[in-house]
Simulated assay, not measured.
Amino acid sequence: MDATNSGNLKTLPLHEFHEAAKARFGAFAGWNMPLTYPLGVLKEHLHTREKAGLFDISHMKLIVVSGPQAADAIARACPLAPETISLGRSKYTFLLNDEAGIDDDIIVTRLGENRYVVVANAGNAAQDIDTLTKAASGLDATVEPLDRVLVALQGPSAEGALLSAGLDLSSLSFMQGIEPRENWFASRSGYTGEDGFEVAIPLEEAKDFIEKLLAHEDVEWIGLAARDSLRLEAGLCLHGNDISASTNPVDAGLMWAIAKSLRESGTFNGADALRAAIAAGPQHARVGLKPEGRQPVRGGTALINADGRTVGEVTSGGFGPSVGHPVAMGYVETDLVAHGTTVYAEVRGTRVPLSVHPLPFTQHRYRKG
C-alpha cells in the first residue's frame, strides 16, 4: 500500500463518504483507497473482531458469466467444475496461466442454472475479463462486467447490522450467495476470518443503504491497512504478495481448492503444467511465521538459516493486534516446514529469529451450515 500521489488513480464511487469520515487515502491496485480512519489501524482491526467493520471494496470487480455454455467457459479458464456447484454456493478457485501460475484467485458463485458471478481482484480485473472472454469464445456464453458498489461487513455484529438496514441474509451460510434484490448480489464471505458478508449494490441505491448501515451503533468504517492485518492473522493470501503469476497452487498449499478428478484429467488452462508440478512435488512451501520480539518483518525480506544461507522469503508481514505479536507469511524450503522450525531475517542490521507457525494465527469464525 503506497500513500503516493493520487492524480492518476481511480476513485471509489462513494469517495465522498470516506472524505467525510476523514479517511487517509493511498494508492492500491490503481485506486485511491481509504487506508485508515481517525480510529486508527489498531482500533479498526479490533473493532472488526469485536463488533462490525465496514469496508468499501468497490475496487474489486464483479463479472457475470451466463448462457447455456457458461459452465463450459468457466471450466476452460479455471480448475473448477462449475456444473457441479449447487445453486447459491460459492467456490474459491484460480485463473491459471500456461505454467500453472496463479494469474488471480477468484470466487465463483452459481446463481442460476446457467448463471455465475465471479469476484475478481482489483489489479487483475481487466486481465480476468479478457481471460474469461477468450474462454467463452465459440461458446454460447456471455461475459458481462458489472458496475456496482461493493462493500464488506465483517464481524460478530454484521448480521444484525444488515437486518437493521433492511437486508435479511440470516439464511446464508459461509460461501453461499444470492441476489436478494434486483441487480444486487450478496454472499456470506469475506477476507478477515470473521463471520460477515459482501454486498454489491447499484450506485443509485448504495448511498441510502450505506447510511443505514452506518447508523448502527456497532458499525465503523475500516480501512485497507486493517483489512491487511485482519487477513494476515486469518492466514489468507494476498495476490501479488503471497501468490502471483509465478506461484502455482502446489507450492502455495492451495490444492484443497482443486478437485482430485480435475487434477488428474481436467482440461482447464494450465492443466498440464499443474499436473507436472504435482508430480514434481512442492519446490518450497507457504507457511506462517512468528517473529521473535515485537519487531514486524515485512514482505520481501529474505529468510536465512543459522549458517546465513537463503532458505526462503517473507511475502507478507506486520503486527497482529488480536494476537498481540508480529505475524508473517512466506515461503521456505520444504524441509523447514515443521512447526517451531527457526529461520532468520535481517532487519535493520539485526538478525531476527522467526519460528514456523500454524496458519491461521486467529481462529476462523465463519457461519458454517
Rank of each mutant, 00 (worst) to 15 (best):
H15L: 08
H15S: 10
E16N: 04
F17P: 14
E19H: 07
A20Y: 03
R24H: 12
G26N: 00
L35S: 00
T36I: 06
G40N: 09
K43D: 03
H47M: 04
K51G: 12
L54C: 03
D56M: 02
L62D: 03
S66D: 15
A73V: 14
A75T: 09
R76Q: 08
R76A: 11
P79K: 06
L80C: 06
I85R: 11
I102S: 03
G112E: 06
V119A: 12
D130C: 01
A135F: 09
A135I: 06
L139S: 06
E144I: 14
L150P: 09
L150C: 08
E159T: 14
L163W: 08
G166K: 12
L172A: 10
S173V: 04
Q176S: 05
W184C: 10
S187V: 15
G190F: 00
F197N: 10
A200R: 07
P202E: 14
I210D: 05
E220I: 01
G223F: 01
C237S: 13
C237N: 06
H239G: 05
S244W: 08
N248Q: 13
V250W: 08
V250E: 06
G253V: 01
S265P: 04
T267L: 07
F268M: 02
G270L: 15
I278C: 11
V287Y: 04
L289I: 02
L289R: 03
R294A: 14
Q295C: 09
Q295D: 03
T301Y: 11
D307A: 15
G308V: 09
V311R: 04
S322Y: 00
H325K: 13
V332N: 01
V337T: 15
A345R: 05
V347T: 13
T350R: 15
S355D: 14
S355P: 01
P360W: 00
F361K: 15
Y366H: 14
